[in-house]
């Protein structure tokens, strides 16, 4: 927070904390800063979501337009990506809250909880995907058919 006391230019342009460009980020720092980046992305999506919600509440046309846009197959994947980012951000947030009360505050358990957050986010996203389309079930049953055919 040191405000430049004199008017020398280079002093005012020193990198501010947290330093991102002065050294290679270790795992936990990388997780921390990507959590913040995801937070900024989610803030932008929250802004869009809520504005859209306000518009939808007022007009049937906007609702119908929204639903026809959401019929696009890519919309579902967009939702999944968003959900993954939410899971990742919440997981990271919980990690930070636990650190703030002194739980798991060393490098090793930091790496462990970081990996746990990544794994859980992926699993939850896959679960959501499965709930949406039942793809995994279809994959299983189609696999079973080929096995049965092979056996015969």
């Amino acid at each position: 927070m040191a405000e430049a006391q004199n008017s020398s230019d280079h002093k005012a342009k020193r990198p501010l904390s947290p330093h991102l460009q002065v050294y290679r980020l270790p795992y936990n720092a990388l997780m921390s800063i990507s959590g913040r980046a995801v937070g900024i992305i989610l803030t932008a999506t929250l802004f869009v979501l809520c504005s859209w919600f306000v518009a939808v509440a007022w007009s049937l046309e906007i609702y119908n337009m929204t639903m026809s846009l959401l019929n696009h197959p890519l919309a579902g994947y967009g939702f999944l990506v968003w959900a993954f980012l939410v899971f990742f951000y919440i997981g990271n947030g919980v990690r930070h809250v636990l650190w703030n009360v002194g739980i798991g505050l060393n490098e090793k358990s930091g790496i462990f909880s970081g990996n746990l957050v990544l794994l859980l986010s992926v699993l939850l996203t896959l679960g959501l995907w499965q709930a949406a389309c039942g793809c995994w079930k279809m994959y299983l049953s189609s696999n079973q058919v080929t096995i049965e055919e092979g056996a015969e």
Partner: peptide, 22 residues
């Protein structure tokens, strides 16, 4: 920190709602 904890069930509900109303 408090809003982080409070948001866990709330964002779960939001995801469930968007998912259910698709």
């Amino acid at each position: 920190d408090i809003t982080t904890i409070a948001n866990i069930p709330l964002i779960g509900w939001v995801i469930y709602t968007i998912f259910s109303l698709r």
